[in-house]
Design a protein around this nucleic acid. Structure first.
Length: 455
RNA sequence: GUGGAUGUAGCUCAGCAGGUUAGAGCGCUGGAUUGUGGUUCCAGAGGUCGCCGGUUCGAACCCGGUCCUCCACCCCA
């Protein structure tokens, strides 16, 4: 067979042992926090029916879905006229009925509806799985990446929002990462749109406001006018653009600015309650009200949360929010949920950038037994068994290779101890334990070896 | 999807305005040292110069296309 160039698709990556060990450090930290809060793990398939996925992530999201070509003759029933009409959607819906999941929240909503009779509500589930987006790769952006989701569904209580914020703090404490947590509420955004008389344009308004700190008030104003919001309405936004101060000051301002909007006031009250709960937890990290936080996902209806690293510019490393009726589209209305999602790959990039991975993520095997030959191996195997039963990560070099080679192997794998048991040692029922860091070596009985390594 | 930068050994990069056999450092393999790694010394292996096509007597170098990576926009974890 002709050899072909080894390659993987754009935006995907292999993870080598060193990377996996560091990635697991992140996953373990997150999983521990999820577990201590009583969340239960589920998994859902990598692919979903396109009907499940389409229309949940906005127009942009639909474009970023990876679609799976139907098996068999996917052209059957398709006419040349369909192609010439340039109706892409007609053709794609004909040849593709499934797609790769874009996030974990929508499949979760689907899961909840399908399993409603086995679930005890409020249901706290977590899910750590890859998702796929057909986006152009760039810094911190991959086509395949892991999300770590925790959601509470079947409860309207704002205690849930505050608990999730607490979990965010716990996770990033474990990872020794400084983060800023931004909080906003879709109802406030809706209220703003209502107050300026542009209730229908909420999507445009939120997307534009989202850019406030990036491009400035003047550009945002321009963009809004270009998107067809009347200049008069845009002018009404001036006090919002000018809003400054701490959380309380901002809430006071919004309280009066939104007083005419029922939904807006609801948003303000919700944020107030969340802040109150959060302050009871004495959470050190900064939780900040940020009305420029919009988040594009269509399904959010209440609180929206976003977390950024304070030291590395990479976009958000965790995000989430409340969705009042995601299950409704699947036939189960009136079930509200709220959740967060940690972006493991971006967190990895931040930790790598700051060199915050503990040294322990660099060690695999603790002890390597040198292989001198058959007689020595017979002496070693029972000993190995003992070490492993004592929980000591140990291995025997499988080949009778030159000692230099075996030592080199230990060295390049960062194995801290090498056990040398040759003819001389075996005669006295001893082994030589070499410390690869200090270079020191001592003779021990098997029991002494076991005792020393279990410390 | 749009725009920009890049692609030479396993890795990081040189490669003089197109000219014989494409280099370095690190890594790798072997030896000095057949029971002692990480230091040192010696030797060696390793390249369709991303891929396809074009210009030229001659292309790693110039031109076109394509793919990957990186960066920005859009959007997002």
């Amino acid at each position: 067979m002709a050899s072909q160039k080894a390659s993987i698709p754009k935006g995907t990556r292999d993870f080598s042992p060193g990377e996996m060990s560091r990635r697991n450090f992140i996953f373990n930290a997150i999983r521990e926090v999820f577990n201590t809060h009583g969340f239960l793990q589920i998994e859902t398939p990598a692919m979903e029916n396109l009907s499940t996925l389409l229309g949940k992530y906005g127009e942009e999201g639909d474009k970023l879905l990876f679609r799976i070509l139907n098996s068999g003759n996917f052209l059957r029933g398709l006419f040349l006229s369909d192609l010439s009409e340039r109706e892409i959607s007609k053709v794609t819906s004909h040849i593709s009925k499934r797609g790769l999941r874009y996030d974990l929240t929508v499949p979760f909503a689907r899961y909840v509806v399908q399993h409603r009779n086995e679930i005890n509500f409020p249901f706290r589930r977590y899910q750590i799985q890859p998702v796929w987006r057909a986006d152009n790769p760039q810094k911190g952006r991959y086509r395949e990446f892991y999300q770590c989701d925790a959601d509470i569904i079947g409860s309207n209580s704002l205690l849930n929002e505050s608990e999730l914020i607490g979990m965010i703090v716990e996770v990033f404490d474990k990872l020794s990462l400084s983060v800023s947590i931004k909080l906003n509420n879709r109802k406030i955004l809706a209220g703003i749109a209502e107050v300026i008389g542009e209730t229908e344009r909420i999507a445009d308004i939120t997307v534009a406001i989202d850019k406030l700190d990036k491009i400035g008030a003047e550009k945002v104003r321009q963009e809004l006018v270009e998107r067809g919001v009347s200049e008069q309405s845009v002018n009404l936004l001036d006090p919002v653009f000018a809003m400054r101060g701490n959380n309380t000051e901002k809430l006071n301002f919004l309280g009066s600015f939104l007083s005419a909007s029922k939904i807006g006031m609801e948003g303000v009250e919700e944020i107030k309650s969340i802040f109150e709960y959060v302050s009871l937890e004495k959470i050190r990290s900064k939780v900040e009200l940020d009305i420029t936080l919009a988040r594009g996902l269509d399904y959010y209806t209440g609180a929206i949360i976003e977390v950024k690293s304070e030291d590395v510019e990479i976009g958000s490393i965790c995000g989430g929010g409340r969705y009042d009726d995601l299950t409704g589209v699947f036939g189960l209305p009136g079930v509200s949920g709220v959740g967060i999602s940690f972006g493991a790959d971006r967190i990895y990039d931040v930790l790598a950038n700051l060199d915050l991975f503990p040294a322990s993520t660099n060690i695999s095997t603790q002890v390597l037994f040198v292989n001198f030959g058959d007689a020595e191996v017979r002496f070693i195997i029972p000993l190995l068994r003992q070490l492993r039963e004592a929980g000591i990560r140990s291995e025997l070099y499988p080949e009778v290779a030159r000692m230099k080679k075996q030592m080199n192997y230990a060295n390049s794998l960062n194995i801290p101890y090498v056990v040398i048991a040759g003819e001389n040692e075996i005669r006295e029922n001893k082994v030589s334990l070499k410390n690869m860091v200090t270079g020191e070596q001592e003779q021990l009985s098997p029991d002494e070896l076991l005792a020393l390594l279990t410390d």
